[in-house]
Protein backbone atom coordinates (compact mmCIF):
# COMPACT_ATOMS: atom_id res chain seq x y z
CA UNK A 1 0.00 0.00 0.00
CA UNK A 2 1.39 3.35 -1.06
CA UNK A 3 0.38 5.84 1.61
CA UNK A 4 1.38 8.94 -0.33
CA UNK A 5 -0.99 7.96 -3.15
CA UNK A 6 -3.65 7.04 -0.60
CA UNK A 7 -3.41 10.54 0.83
CA UNK A 8 -3.45 12.19 -2.61
CA UNK A 9 -6.50 10.15 -3.62
CA UNK A 10 -8.24 11.10 -0.39
CA UNK A 11 -7.67 14.81 -1.04
CA UNK A 12 -8.88 14.42 -4.62
CA UNK A 13 -12.00 12.65 -3.40
CA UNK A 14 -12.86 15.58 -1.12
CA UNK A 15 -13.84 17.51 -4.25
CA UNK A 16 -16.83 15.25 -4.97
CA UNK A 17 -18.04 15.05 -1.36
CA UNK A 18 -20.33 18.12 -1.63
CA UNK A 19 -22.18 16.85 -4.69
CA UNK A 20 -22.50 13.39 -3.14
CA UNK A 21 -23.88 14.88 0.07
CA UNK A 22 -26.29 17.06 -1.91
CA UNK A 23 -27.56 14.02 -3.80
CA UNK A 24 -27.86 12.05 -0.57
CA UNK A 25 -29.75 14.84 1.22
CA UNK A 26 -32.17 15.24 -1.70
CA UNK A 27 -32.89 11.52 -1.71
CA UNK A 28 -33.13 11.44 2.07
CA UNK A 29 -35.73 14.22 2.21
CA UNK A 30 -37.73 12.70 -0.65
CA UNK A 31 -37.64 9.30 1.01
CA UNK A 32 -38.95 10.77 4.27
CA UNK A 33 -41.80 12.48 2.42
CA UNK A 34 -42.74 9.34 0.48
CA UNK A 35 -42.27 7.23 3.59
CA UNK A 36 -44.56 9.51 5.63
CA UNK A 37 -47.25 9.29 2.96
CA UNK A 38 -46.92 5.50 2.95
CA UNK A 39 -47.06 5.37 6.75
CA UNK A 40 -50.11 7.65 6.90
CA UNK A 41 -51.91 5.56 4.27
CA UNK A 42 -51.26 2.45 6.33
CA UNK A 43 -52.13 4.07 9.64
CA UNK A 44 -55.44 5.53 8.45
CA UNK A 45 -56.39 2.43 6.42
CA UNK A 46 -57.07 4.29 3.16
CA UNK A 47 -58.90 1.63 1.04
CA UNK A 48 -57.20 0.70 -2.34
CA UNK A 49 -54.11 2.86 -1.63
CA UNK A 50 -53.23 0.72 1.37
CA UNK A 51 -53.19 -2.40 -0.80
CA UNK A 52 -50.94 -0.65 -3.32
CA UNK A 53 -48.52 0.45 -0.57
CA UNK A 54 -48.34 -3.07 0.86
CA UNK A 55 -47.64 -4.59 -2.58
CA UNK A 56 -45.06 -1.94 -3.48
CA UNK A 57 -43.31 -2.50 -0.14
CA UNK A 58 -43.22 -6.26 -0.67
CA UNK A 59 -41.78 -5.88 -4.17
CA UNK A 60 -39.20 -3.31 -3.05
CA UNK A 61 -38.13 -5.54 -0.17
CA UNK A 62 -37.41 -8.33 -2.61
CA UNK A 63 -35.71 -6.41 -5.40
CA UNK A 64 -32.02 -5.55 -5.11
CA UNK A 65 -31.39 -1.85 -5.57
CA UNK A 66 -29.13 -2.32 -8.57
CA UNK A 67 -31.86 -4.26 -10.41
CA UNK A 68 -34.32 -1.48 -9.64
CA UNK A 69 -31.86 1.16 -10.85
CA UNK A 70 -31.36 -0.67 -14.14
CA UNK A 71 -35.11 -1.20 -14.52
CA UNK A 72 -35.78 2.50 -14.03
CA UNK A 73 -32.84 3.46 -16.24
CA UNK A 74 -34.24 1.49 -19.14
CA UNK A 75 -37.97 1.97 -18.60
CA UNK A 76 -38.38 5.46 -17.13
CA UNK A 77 -37.57 7.46 -20.31
CA UNK A 78 -40.21 5.62 -22.37
CA UNK A 79 -42.70 5.80 -19.52
CA UNK A 80 -42.24 9.54 -19.11
CA UNK A 81 -42.54 10.13 -22.86
CA UNK A 82 -45.73 8.05 -22.90
CA UNK A 83 -47.25 9.76 -19.86
CA UNK A 84 -46.44 13.25 -21.08
CA UNK A 85 -47.95 12.23 -24.44
CA UNK A 86 -51.16 11.33 -22.61
CA UNK A 87 -51.51 14.82 -21.17
CA UNK A 88 -50.65 16.34 -24.54
CA UNK A 89 -47.07 17.38 -23.73
CA UNK A 90 -44.33 16.74 -26.23
CA UNK A 91 -41.52 15.82 -23.82
CA UNK A 92 -38.76 13.47 -24.84
CA UNK A 93 -38.05 11.20 -21.87
CA UNK A 94 -34.61 10.19 -23.15
CA UNK A 95 -33.33 13.56 -21.95
CA UNK A 96 -33.83 12.64 -18.29
CA UNK A 97 -30.42 12.92 -16.60
CA UNK A 98 -29.24 9.69 -14.93
CA UNK A 99 -29.01 11.50 -11.59
CA UNK A 100 -32.82 11.94 -11.61
CA UNK A 101 -33.27 8.23 -12.29
CA UNK A 102 -30.95 7.41 -9.40
CA UNK A 103 -32.87 9.81 -7.14
CA UNK A 104 -36.21 8.19 -8.02
CA UNK A 105 -34.95 4.61 -7.61
CA UNK A 106 -33.14 5.13 -4.31
CA UNK A 107 -35.88 7.37 -2.83
CA UNK A 108 -38.53 4.70 -3.32
CA UNK A 109 -36.36 1.89 -2.00
CA UNK A 110 -35.37 3.81 1.12
CA UNK A 111 -38.92 5.15 1.54
CA UNK A 112 -40.24 1.64 2.00
CA UNK A 113 -37.89 1.24 4.97
CA UNK A 114 -38.59 4.78 6.18
CA UNK A 115 -42.31 4.00 6.26
CA UNK A 116 -41.68 1.33 8.90
CA UNK A 117 -39.52 3.69 10.98
CA UNK A 118 -42.08 6.46 10.79
CA UNK A 119 -44.95 4.11 11.61
CA UNK A 120 -43.00 2.79 14.57
CA UNK A 121 -42.33 6.28 15.87
CA UNK A 122 -46.01 7.23 15.48
CA UNK A 123 -47.02 4.12 17.37
CA UNK A 124 -44.58 4.95 20.16
CA UNK A 125 -46.59 8.05 21.07
CA UNK A 126 -48.64 7.61 24.21
CA UNK A 127 -52.34 7.31 23.49
CA UNK A 128 -53.07 9.75 26.33
CA UNK A 129 -51.31 12.47 24.36
CA UNK A 130 -53.74 12.09 21.48
CA UNK A 131 -56.74 11.90 23.81
CA UNK A 132 -55.57 15.03 25.60
CA UNK A 133 -55.22 16.86 22.29
CA UNK A 134 -58.67 15.70 21.21
CA UNK A 135 -60.23 16.82 24.48
CA UNK A 136 -58.62 20.23 24.01
CA UNK A 137 -60.37 20.46 20.66
CA UNK A 138 -57.32 20.31 18.38
CA UNK A 139 -58.07 19.75 14.72
CA UNK A 140 -56.38 16.64 13.25
CA UNK A 141 -53.85 18.88 11.46
CA UNK A 142 -53.01 20.83 14.64
CA UNK A 143 -52.72 17.58 16.51
CA UNK A 144 -50.30 16.20 13.93
CA UNK A 145 -48.22 19.36 13.84
CA UNK A 146 -48.07 20.19 17.55
CA UNK A 147 -48.38 16.84 19.30
CA UNK A 148 -47.54 13.90 17.08
CA UNK A 149 -44.77 15.17 14.80
CA UNK A 150 -42.44 16.68 17.46
CA UNK A 151 -42.56 13.57 19.63
CA UNK A 152 -42.33 11.14 16.74
CA UNK A 153 -39.26 12.99 15.45
CA UNK A 154 -37.28 12.36 18.62
CA UNK A 155 -38.08 8.66 18.43
CA UNK A 156 -37.13 8.48 14.78
CA UNK A 157 -33.79 10.32 14.84
CA UNK A 158 -31.44 7.36 15.39
CA UNK A 159 -33.24 5.47 12.63
CA UNK A 160 -33.10 8.52 10.38
CA UNK A 161 -29.37 8.87 10.80
CA UNK A 162 -28.83 5.23 9.90
CA UNK A 163 -31.12 5.53 6.89
CA UNK A 164 -29.19 8.60 5.75
CA UNK A 165 -26.08 6.43 5.80
CA UNK A 166 -27.96 3.78 3.84
CA UNK A 167 -28.71 6.44 1.23
CA UNK A 168 -25.05 7.51 1.17
CA UNK A 169 -24.01 3.94 0.54
CA UNK A 170 -26.79 3.29 -1.95
CA UNK A 171 -25.84 6.10 -4.30
CA UNK A 172 -22.43 4.50 -4.73
CA UNK A 173 -24.29 2.28 -7.21
CA UNK A 174 -24.84 5.34 -9.37
CA UNK A 175 -21.59 4.62 -11.20
CA UNK A 176 -23.47 1.91 -13.13
CA UNK A 177 -25.59 4.60 -14.76
CA UNK A 178 -22.80 7.21 -15.00
CA UNK A 179 -23.66 9.29 -11.92
CA UNK A 180 -20.42 10.50 -10.32
CA UNK A 181 -20.20 10.23 -6.53
CA UNK A 182 -17.30 9.37 -4.19
CA UNK A 183 -17.02 5.78 -5.37
CA UNK A 184 -17.34 6.61 -9.07
CA UNK A 185 -14.65 9.29 -8.66
CA UNK A 186 -12.41 6.74 -6.90
CA UNK A 187 -12.83 4.43 -9.90
CA UNK A 188 -11.87 7.24 -12.25
CA UNK A 189 -8.78 8.07 -10.16
CA UNK A 190 -7.84 4.39 -10.02
CA UNK A 191 -8.03 3.88 -13.78
CA UNK A 192 -5.97 7.04 -14.13
CA UNK A 193 -3.00 6.07 -11.95
CA UNK A 194 -3.74 2.31 -11.70
CA UNK A 195 -3.37 2.22 -7.92
CA UNK A 196 -6.67 0.45 -7.41
CA UNK A 197 -6.42 -0.60 -3.76
CA UNK A 198 -5.32 2.89 -2.68
CA UNK A 199 -8.16 4.65 -4.47
CA UNK A 200 -10.84 2.31 -3.13
CA UNK A 201 -9.38 2.41 0.34
CA UNK A 202 -9.38 6.21 0.23
CA UNK A 203 -13.06 6.10 -0.77
CA UNK A 204 -13.76 3.65 2.06
CA UNK A 205 -12.06 5.97 4.55
CA UNK A 206 -14.17 8.85 3.24
CA UNK A 207 -17.40 6.92 3.77
CA UNK A 208 -16.21 5.85 7.20
CA UNK A 209 -15.50 9.46 8.18
CA UNK A 210 -18.86 10.66 6.86
CA UNK A 211 -20.74 8.00 8.79
CA UNK A 212 -18.82 8.75 11.99
CA UNK A 213 -19.65 12.46 11.66
CA UNK A 214 -23.31 11.74 10.89
CA UNK A 215 -23.71 9.44 13.89
CA UNK A 216 -22.07 11.98 16.22
CA UNK A 217 -24.19 14.87 14.94
CA UNK A 218 -27.43 12.92 15.13
CA UNK A 219 -26.83 11.76 18.69
CA UNK A 220 -26.00 15.36 19.68
CA UNK A 221 -29.25 16.53 18.05
CA UNK A 222 -31.19 13.77 19.77
CA UNK A 223 -29.79 14.82 23.14
CA UNK A 224 -30.75 18.41 22.38
CA UNK A 225 -34.32 17.44 21.48
CA UNK A 226 -34.59 15.29 24.59
CA UNK A 227 -33.41 18.15 26.79
CA UNK A 228 -36.10 20.39 25.31
CA UNK A 229 -38.91 17.95 25.95
Amino acid sequence: MNFLILFEDFVQLLAVVPQTLLLAITIFILSILIGTVMALIQEYNVPVLKLIVVIVKLLLRGTPLIVLIFLMYYSLPDTVTFLSGLVGLDYNGTNIPPAIILIVAVSFTVASFQAETIRGSFLSINKGQIEAAQSLGYTPYQMFKKIIAPQALVEAIPEFSSSFLIVMKAISLGFMITVVDIFAEARLIATDNSYYVEAFFAAALMYWAISAITVTLSSKYEEYLHSRM
Binding site: L165, M168, K169, A170, S172, L173, F183, A186, Y196, V197, F200, F201, A203, A204, Y207, W208, I210, S211, A212
Partner: peptide, 22 residues
Amino acid sequence: SSFTRSVPIIIQLFIVFYALPP
Protein backbone atom coordinates in the same frame (compact mmCIF):
# COMPACT_ATOMS: atom_id res chain seq x y z
CA SER B 1 -17.45 -4.22 12.25
CA SER B 2 -17.78 -0.45 12.03
CA PHE B 3 -15.80 -0.51 8.77
CA THR B 4 -17.98 -3.16 7.12
CA ARG B 5 -21.12 -1.34 8.21
CA SER B 6 -20.16 2.16 7.07
CA VAL B 7 -18.50 1.42 3.74
CA PRO B 8 -20.64 0.56 0.70
CA ILE B 9 -20.47 -3.14 -0.14
CA ILE B 10 -19.42 -2.34 -3.71
CA ILE B 11 -16.21 -0.74 -2.39
CA GLN B 12 -15.57 -3.69 -0.11
CA LEU B 13 -15.95 -5.98 -3.12
CA PHE B 14 -13.45 -3.96 -5.14
CA ILE B 15 -10.95 -3.66 -2.26
CA VAL B 16 -10.96 -7.42 -1.71
CA PHE B 17 -10.81 -8.06 -5.47
CA TYR B 18 -7.68 -5.94 -5.90
CA ALA B 19 -6.03 -6.43 -2.50
CA LEU B 20 -6.53 -10.17 -1.99
CA PRO B 21 -4.15 -11.52 -4.69
CA PRO B 22 -1.11 -9.48 -3.48
